[in-house]
Design a protein around this nucleic acid. Structure first.
Lengths: 216, 216
DNA sequence: ATTACTAGGTTCCGAGTAA
DNA sequence: TTTACTCGGAACCTAGTAA
């Protein structure tokens, strides 16, 4: 079967739920897929001759079933996608110096209270900054659960909200629960992320600037 | 993006593992996919302008990344396939009279012994025969685990092997563990399957000929 | 009403080649 | 070496229509 006809097979798989037979007509499929009746007729013949479906012409249209080969073909695609989406995602970053701002933020009681309830611990007063690939961050975070830390206002100034992703951070020295945070008012570009944990990450991981750590 | 270009996106998803960037060249992809360099160049432009990938031309080729939209697109496909393949499969059949052969077979000690070890019980001496859709059987059994019952020879005659699938059978009256068996020497067409259980299924399910039961 | 053939029009592909 | 344009030819799609 031509790779390009995959969408036809997917359509038929949906309609047959992979096992029931499906009574329809070429013009009905044509209307649903936005192509001509003639093309549907031809495509069904193609897909059937590739052994992907069983096709029977009746008085009132066509009756279609997925064949074992068709199911096998789609199952293999399913396996590939499953592998891609469930593979352990990780983000590699190099340690860099923060601006010392993190320490100030982490001391705010209204942040601390929220972190305690979301993460189960009060973070160490200081963040570990990592230089990462901005695109890799997007992809990595897409697979992680986000929890929002609300901003607030004090007499002196206002503090913005933060997106907080619980993660695991490790290098050759250690592995610890931590959280990746992205302030709404981001002082870094998207090439830098901040990590917080119950303890001082620099100490626990025994890292200095430019050392690599892995976030999972 | 054109539905037909899905195979390109799948190829790129594999190569990038959905998140890493992937340095390659149009001619390299062309060779791997068996199409021309020119077509690859055009397809990459198409897929990129559909927002599915991020593409950067470098001195030595192209660098490709999946975009969030591309991942979303594939994730939705993954979800569809997952739904299809993990949906609870069931087989509906109508009770019919056997030829009384089942009872004879079920009395053979060498079958009984194997059933005991595979199913955990000695089946009732008699089978319940169901008329089913032969294609639906294939599809249904494809999702089930098969266990083989060996044939054997006695002084009087030889007995063939059986394929045995542990299943759940139910109707409005009851639900019980049972097994679907398909003799290697099938006396029925593929339109009939035989079911065995610890007890007499006709009695437990309170069924007579033509009543419907569901096999899961 | 169907499916599916033929014919012609459109799209798509790839060889050549510019940048 | 690249990517990607032009353009001729191949592949593909759909209108018309037979069965």
């Amino acid at each position: 079967m031509n790779q390009k006809d995959l969408y036809i097979l997917l359509y038929l798989a949906q309609k047959t739920q992979l096992q029931q037979s499906f009574k329809t007509s070429t013009s009905l499929i044509a209307a649903e897929l936005g192509i001509s009746q003639q093309t549907v007729s031809r495509k069904l013949l193609d897909v059937a001759s590739a052994g992907m479906i069983q096709r029977r012409v009746t008085l009132s249209g066509v009756e279609i079933r997925m064949s074992p080969e068709g199911r096998k073909h789609l199952f293999s695609l399913y396996g590939d996608l499953k592998h891609l989406f469930t593979a352990k995602q990780e983000l590699i970053g190099a340690v860099t110096s923060g601006l010392g701002e993190g320490r100030f933020y982490m001391k705010q009681p209204l942040y601390k209270k929220q972190f305690q309830s979301i993460l189960g611990y009060v973070p160490f007063a200081g963040t570990l900054n990592l230089i990462v690939d901005r695109f890799a961050v997007d992809a990595f975070l897409a697979t992680k659960k986000m929890q929002y830390i609300n901003g607030f206002v004090t007499k002196k100034r206002s503090f913005g909200g933060l997106r907080c992703y619980p993660i695991l951070i490790h290098n050759t020295n250690n592995t610890i629960n931590a959280a990746l945070i992205i302030p709404d008012r981001n002082i870094h570009g998207h090439d830098t992320v901040e990590l917080i944990a119950a303890e001082c990450l620099r100490t626990v991981l025994q890292v200095k600037n430019n050392d690599e750590v892995v976030v999972q």
